[in-house]
């Protein structure tokens, strides 16, 4: 089985890092995984996204035209990826940074004010982990929340270990939000 996830937002929202944590979780769970960033000439505040493909077998394409899931951290990302999701896919929306609701009815939509939740937990920078928790809380077939928590513990850089408890709480807070 293969699952494709796109994580997208402004530069600085931690989309690439969230994708890497998801990739570590998949790797440590014994799965195949490919993480690929969008790269190119970008201006400050421009878009940053990555695609993560998790599979039980050798992965073909690292990119997906129609991903199974998308985490959208801002409005341009919602506009871009909502139409591209597979029917039945999971769309996780950061309502702190968008001013409209998704319109598609054939997908699972998870709405949460990730920046506001993160702020209460200790800072905006936790918003990406809140969103990632929300994805796995609603798409547990790819990797489990426990896999992710173990991966964050194991791979958070040493200089950031003091933020580990806050990151784990952020993941749990996000996971508690269920699809509408």
């Amino acid at each position: 089985m293969q699952t494709e996830v796109i994580i997208s937002g402004f530069g600085g929202q931690g989309t690439l890092f969230a994708g890497q944590m998801l990739s570590y979780a998949a790797m440590d769970a014994g799965k195949e995984v490919t993480w690929i960033p969008s790269y190119g000439p970008e201006m400050r505040g421009g878009t940053a996204n990555c695609t993560v493909v998790v599979s039980d077998e050798e992965i073909g394409s690292p990119l997906a035209r129609n991903p199974k899931a998308a985490i959208v951290m801002n409005l341009p990302s919602l506009d871009k990826y909502e139409p591209l999701l597979q029917p039945g896919g999971v769309l996780v929306v950061n309502t702190s940074m968008v001013n409209r609701e998704p319109t598609r009815k054939d997908i699972k939509v998870v709405l949460l004010p990730a920046n506001d939740i993160a702020e209460k937990l200790g800072g905006q920078r936790l918003a990406n982990m809140v969103m990632l928790g929300a994805l796995l809380g609603n798409l547990p077939t790819m990797v489990t929340l426990e896999d992710l928590e173990a991966a964050v513990k194991a791979h958070l850089p040493a200089r950031h270990q003091k933020f580990l408890p806050a990151n784990l709480t952020a993941i749990r807070e996000g996971a508690a939000v269920k699809a509408q």
Partner: peptide, 8 residues
């Protein structure tokens, strides 16, 4: 693509 991607 292969240069920029991460894989186990």
């Amino acid at each position: 693509s292969i240069g920029q991607m991460m894989e186990p």
